[in-house]
Nucleic acid binder design. Structure first.
Length: 492
RNA sequence: GCUCCCUUCGUCUAGUGGUUAGGACGCCGGCCUCUCACGUCGGUAACAGGGGUUCGAGUCCCCUAGGGAGCGCCA
């Protein structure tokens, strides 16, 4: 056992001892293996969702593996971000996450086994040798590959550094019957002897993946199709190890609007960014499942429906372009349909961010109810609700110009008197009162409602004026109208 | 360059040999209306191209073009 683990292993995630995985079972086992070099992005979230769904819908297990063999680039904040993102999306996994950095001994053991069984060999070629080799091959229009110079064991140069290469079969083909792409046939001659252990004896990606998938008893490997090229190599190693082959499903990538692979420059790509921007986790999940998969004309899926209807074999073979607009539409749909109390649970952090303590403020749920069908994000919901908790600190110049002019002052003055007599203070009574005054002046309701709206909200936008005032309360309403009157008088 | 993957409205997709090629997002327009929204009605727009097979092809086969990924002592 190696004694030094990266800091994040001590973060409290209770990493289990290596090789404590429960073994062969007829059940489905899938996994999600992010490498903690950044945040969980939406592409990763989608493959995680597909894997989760595939396991859960057949009563199987879904495991998480942190691929942190690159100690240079792996960070514990990334691990935390990934785990937090998974939790936010409610993609729960069985067993504690497996950290590859803790399994080095196991990888070395497998490499030794491959070496002694003749499936691997030491290669003494230097990086310069390889670079030269590749340059020449490229010049000849060939695919750069290791030429197998050290494959036939010659006397090793004394204490020269060496790597370990897997002895890939030189003939025959590897057939992958992919659940999404269909049958893929690769000629072994296209493959070369890949490095499985670096000169510092640490294992490389293709080796660790194979060992872990084998040890974890993974039955279905669901991953991005950028891994298709790795698959035949991994299968060959698996075979050399005598392991059962998993079933593969390579899901297409998510592209940005320019058709290029999704990246930071396409705007928000991290799951946490969507959380901060006011998206509901289920809305994101719903968007993601529909990206590359469909069930007839249905657009909205509950969790149970996802579990019930999703079929990995039906996912589209081609890449899909991410559409922020459609995501936002879905988010809006879910915000609109949510029960106010439930919505509040998700909006809490956004209210708090705006300095509003939803425990202490009254009327938060009422504000949510009035604004939920006009907010595309939780952030917008909070912004629109703010007026109920704070008087306007200024009047929008455009709105004031338009609605505080003409007879506005006169009307507002009348309104104060009329409102004083309203009892009980209800939307219905306010509504009637506004109509009476409008009629008295022979004006449309707009001429009355807008000045009031600007007076209480500071802007020309709010939920229906009667309900807005009702929720705001009589005192606040009168105070704010009076303040507006003072403002108008001062300006005149 | 080589290997692999992919190709229906701008975008996400339905389609499984016979359809006016459907839905959704977006966009445009009408209605509704106290603002913003909602809602509602309608509109816009696609089978990459070319050959076959077939009575009949978006659906099957081949080729071309275009796009993507990989070709590391990264994962």
């Amino acid at each position: 056992m190696s004694g030094t683990y990266p800091a994040y292993c001590q973060l409290g995630y209770n990493v289990t001892e290596t090789q404590a995985f429960s073994r062969p079972m007829p059940t489905t086992v899938t996994r999600f293996p992010p490498s903690p070099t950044g945040y969980l992005h939406i592409g990763g979230a989608r493959t995680a969702l597909f894997s989760w769904l595939h396991a859960r819908q057949r009563g199987g297990r879904f495991l998480l593996r942190i691929e942190d063999t690159d100690r240079q680039r792996s960070t514990d904040t990334s691990v935390r971000a990934i785990l937090d993102s998974m939790a936010w999306l409610e993609l729960d996994y069985d067993e504690e996450p497996v950290f590859q950095s803790r399994r080095m001994d196991r990888y070395r053991q497998v490499i030794d086994r491959l070496l002694t069984s003749g499936w691997a060999y030491r290669c003494y070629c230097t990086k310069q040798d390889l670079e030269h080799m590749r340059k020449q091959q490229r010049a000849r229009g060939e695919k750069p590959k290791y030429n197998g110079r050290c494959r036939v064991g010659q006397a090793p140069p004394t204490d020269a550094a060496s790597v370990v290469r897997f002895k890939n079969p030189r003939e025959g083909t590897v057939i992958v019957d992919d659940l999404i792409k269909g049958k893929i046939i690769i000629d072994n001659r296209e493959l070369d002897d890949l490095i499985i252990a670096r000169s510092d004896s640490t294992p490389t990606y293709n080796l660790t993946v194979v060992v872990d998938d084998m040890d974890m008893g993974i039955t279905h490997v669901i991953r991005g199709d950028d891994h298709i090229n790795n698959t035949p190599r991994q299968i060959n190693i698996l075979k050399a190890l005598g392991a059962d082959l998993p079933i593969y499903a390579h899901v297409p990538m998510i592209l940005g609007e320019d058709g290029k692979r999704m990246s930071k420059r396409h705007g928000a790509v991290s799951v946490m960014q969507y959380r901060e921007d006011g998206y509901l986790p289920h809305a994101l999940l719903n968007y993601l499942i529909r990206l590359g998969w469909a069930h007839g004309d249905q657009e909205k899926f509950s969790r149970d429906q996802m579990l019930d209807m999703f079929d990995i074999r039906q996912v589209q073979r081609g890449a899909a372009v991410f559409s922020p607009e459609k995501l936002q539409w879905l988010n809006y749909e879910y915000i609109k349909a949510a029960a106010p109390a439930e919505l509040l649970r998700h909006a809490r952090e956004h209210f708090e961010h705006a300095g509003i303590d939803i425990e202490r403020e009254e009327g938060v749920e009422g504000a949510v109810r009035l604004n939920q069908d006009r907010s595309k994000t939780l952030k917008e919901l909070v912004e629109r609700s703010l007026l109920f908790f704070r008087p306007p600190d200024h009047y929008d110049p455009k709105a004031a110009n338009k609605h505080f002019t003409g007879g506005a002052a006169q009307i507002l003055t009348e309104l104060i008197d009329a409102f004083r007599d309203i009892d009980p203070w209800s939307a219905e009574h306010i509504h009637d009162c506004l109509h009476r005054i409008a009629e008295r002046h022979g004006l449309g309701l707009g001429k009355i409602a807008q000045p009031v709206r600007v007076a209480v909200a500071g802007v020309a936008v709010s939920p229906p004026i009667d309900e807005t005032l009702a929720l705001l309360g009589k005192m606040q309403t009168l105070d704010r109208i009076q303040a507006a009157l003072n403002f108008i008088a001062k300006g005149a």
